[in-house]
Amino acid sequence: MAEYERSRTMPALPEHVFDQAADVTQLDTWLPDRLHVDVDTPPAVTVHEDDSGRDLPALLRSERDQMRLEWGTRGQGSYAGWLQVAGIGSGASEVTVHLSFFEADHDPGERAVQEALDGSLRRLEDQVRMRVDNTAG
């Protein structure tokens, strides 16, 4: 089993960050470029992987009271992950994303995962900034 985790500070209230991260209509704006999520009947979703061309049945759960998203594959248990938002004062938040790969053939390797996590957190921050700027102005 391989586990990876990255965090990023974002200049917005945790509620704003979580609302953006949990908006299922906006997931493709911050997820890794090669992944696309189609919402079936929540919490059921389908994840399309561009690299393999496969559609994987998955679950996505949103716990707003805990500022937490959790996801993973359905039926096969190949991977799971979570995103946690925490307020750190002064209107800022820290977002942590954690991935666990239970099967070696699903683990793309440390470098690829870390780059994907960093890119996703950067895109999420961009989306949060646009949302906060639009709300403020």
Rank of each mutant, 00 (worst) to 15 (best):
Q76S: 15
V24Q: 08
E15Q: 08
G72A: 15
A92D: 03
G87T: 02
D33Q: 11
L35M: 15
D107F: 04
H48W: 01
L35V: 02
E70R: 15
L56V: 00
P108Q: 01
L124W: 04
W82N: 10
V113M: 00
G89S: 07
V47I: 11
P108F: 04
I88D: 01
M67K: 04
S120H: 03
L124N: 13
R129P: 14
D50K: 08
L69T: 03
R122A: 08
G72T: 10
D50V: 04
S52Y: 15
M130C: 04
D33M: 14
L59P: 06
M67Q: 13
Q127W: 02
T96M: 09
D118Q: 14
H16P: 05
G77S: 12
V95N: 03
D55V: 07
D133W: 04
D126W: 06
V47D: 03
F101V: 14
Q84F: 10
A116V: 02
E125R: 11
Q76P: 15
R54S: 11
Q127I: 08
V24W: 08
R54E: 04
V95D: 06
D51F: 12
R34Y: 12
G77C: 11
E63P: 05
D40P: 13
L69N: 04
T25K: 07
S78T: 10
P108V: 06
R8T: 14
A86Y: 03
L27D: 08
R129E: 03
G119Q: 12
T9V: 10
D28M: 09
A80P: 00
L69W: 09
R74H: 11
L13N: 15
H98R: 12
Q84L: 07
F18G: 00
T96L: 13
A2F: 07
Q66G: 11
E49M: 06
L27T: 10
L99E: 15
I88N: 03
G89N: 02
G81V: 13
S62Y: 02
M67N: 10
S120W: 07
L13I: 13
W71L: 15
I88Q: 03
A116M: 02
G87P: 01
T9Y: 14
E5L: 07
D33R: 14
G89K: 06
R8P: 15
G77M: 14
D28Y: 12
M130S: 12
R74V: 11
G89P: 00
S52L: 02
Y4T: 12
D65Q: 08
Q76K: 09
L83W: 00
S7N: 08
E63S: 15
T41Y: 01
L83T: 12
F18I: 00
L59Y: 07
V47Q: 05
E125A: 09
R111M: 00
H98E: 09
R68K: 10
N134K: 04
T41L: 10
D28V: 09
S7C: 09
L35K: 11
T96P: 08
E3K: 14
P42F: 05
G109F: 00
H36A: 10
F102G: 14
V17W: 01
V113I: 13
E5T: 13
H16G: 02
D40G: 13
V47S: 09
P57S: 06
G72P: 01
E3V: 09
A58S: 12
E49D: 12
V132Y: 01
Q127Y: 05
P32V: 02
I88T: 06
Q84M: 12
V39A: 03
Q20D: 07
V85P: 04
V17E: 03
G109K: 03
R64L: 00
T29V: 08
V45W: 02
I88L: 13
R111F: 02
A86C: 05
T46F: 06
